[in-house]
Amino acid sequence: MEHIIDIVLMAFMAVAAIVMIRLRSLFAVVMLSGIFSLLSASLFVVLDAVDVAFTEAAVGAGISTVLMLSTLALTFRDERPPRRRDPVPLVVVLVTGAALVYGTLDMPHFGDPDAPIHHHVAPRYIVDSPVEVGPPNMVTSVLASYRGYDTLGETTVIFTAGIGVMVLLAGSWRRRRRPASGRTPGGTETRS
């Protein structure tokens, strides 16, 4: 039963990805990428990774969609059609895809209990974290206590990204506003 759900979700994700490549309307592409994130969040729920699913639903399906929509407000709503067919990207994608598929051949099977990841530090966290750290949610113990340095680094990355975006956009916006005030609305104007 679980495998059927996995396959259906994966199939939907593949369809969404292909449609995203084909579409030229960026608004629809942004919406589809939100749907893609929601589908992968459902996949994480099926895999019992609720914390990851939670993050994916909040960040991938929620915030990213809104941020990309606001990016469209700053740029354009339609992708420019390609001038000519260039074979190089196709070759790059095919080679990379083939390399990735070749890489999965060596990987342990899906859900294999003998996989290396289940024999490194995971048993220690499962056995010792209720005694050493305490919280019933082991993910929190790992993230905030065992891996406290990593999480501090992640928070710093978010901080740096935020400052960078603020500096970039605040500067460019102030410069753009003056000449832009007399700009006439484009063809996408639908307000009545």
Partner: peptide, 26 residues
Amino acid sequence: GILLVELGVGITVWAVMVSIFLAFVG
């Protein structure tokens, strides 16, 4: 410790998300 640290993460993420969004809408 976990409570304070998670609070720190929450504050930064909230502030950065709001700032980025408001910067984006110009």
